[in-house]
């Protein structure tokens, strides 16, 4: 038996969640989950370049185990909700911290994308809802056929306003990732003069790769390269 009493685990979790630093850690950890999904989703989607059989087969594969599918969806949903709730609470803290804003403010270091993470995040949330209605549920799609991914993508993206909205959303995703991908390390306490600059470069490169990979699909459809 120890002679020093210890604070209970529930009180510890409450203390961390109460601190803005704790909420930022939640944002970082859920951000990792969401980024993992974004990466996997892009790699899966790029199979469209391998022909309709390949990508349609991939869709069937993803749906082959409903238990696994819903487990993954559950994890993503929980991550999304926690990411959103933390962001909303942090925003209300920072808004209260400066009730009277500067008449003139000139940022010296940060990028526009880094300062507008909440805006790009909310836009992406709206996009995710639309994207699900478009390609998963199909109720926002003109000619949706269950598990016919190639057909759905081609007919979906042939409407140019839809393609443009996807491309715009991906640019916001890129801006969000460019800050988020290195910032999550800083939030979790990982920073080093040797590795952090490399991490920031890596974040930018990765954000660009994700944007190009995803944007290439509607562009390829519009250009008639996939059909």
């Amino acid at each position: 038996m120890s002679s020093v009493a210890s604070v209970g685990s529930r009180a510890r979790v409450a203390r961390v969640w109460q601190a803005p630093i704790g909420k930022k850690a939640v944002m970082a950890l859920t951000g990792v989950v969401l980024f993992g999904f974004v990466l996997g989703h892009m790699l899966g989607n790029l199979q469209i370049y391998l022909g309709s059989e390949q990508i349609d087969h991939y869709a069937v594969l993803l749906r082959s185990s409903p238990k696994l599918l819903w487990a993954v969806r559950g994890v993503l949903l929980v991550a999304l909700v926690l990411h959103f709730v933390s962001a909303a609470q942090l925003k209300s803290i920072s808004r209260a911290a400066r009730p009277d804003d500067y008449r003139k403010y000139d940022p010296q270091r940060s990028t526009l994308g880094a300062r507008t993470m909440l805006g790009s995040g909310l836009l992406l949330l709206a996009f995710v809802v639309y994207h699900l209605m478009h390609f998963t549920f199909g109720n926002a799609h003109p000619d949706f056929e269950e598990l016919k991914v190639h057909h759905n993508v081609v007919t979906g993206f042939q409407e140019w306003p839809v393609s443009v909205s996807y491309i715009v959303a991906m640019v916001f995703l890129g801006m969000h990732l460019r800050h988020g991908l290195w910032s999550m390390f800083q939030s979790l306490g990982v920073s080093h003069p040797r590795y952090t600059p490399a991490l920031r470069t890596f974040a930018t490169v990765f954000a660009v790769v994700i944007v190009i990979g995803n944007v290439s699909i509607p562009i390829a459809v519009l250009a008639g390269l996939i059909g």
Binding site: S94, A96, A97, P107, Q108, R109, Q186, S191
Partner: peptide, 26 residues
């Protein structure tokens, strides 16, 4: 408020203290 890792503080600090210290605090 909370830290969003913008490093505006580091740019403004008259002693040029690095945000590496914030990671250490975290």
């Amino acid at each position: 408020g909370h830290c969003t890792n913008l490093a505006e503080c580091e740019a403004a600090c008259p002693k040029a203290i690095s945000i590496e210290t914030i990671a250490r605090m975290n």
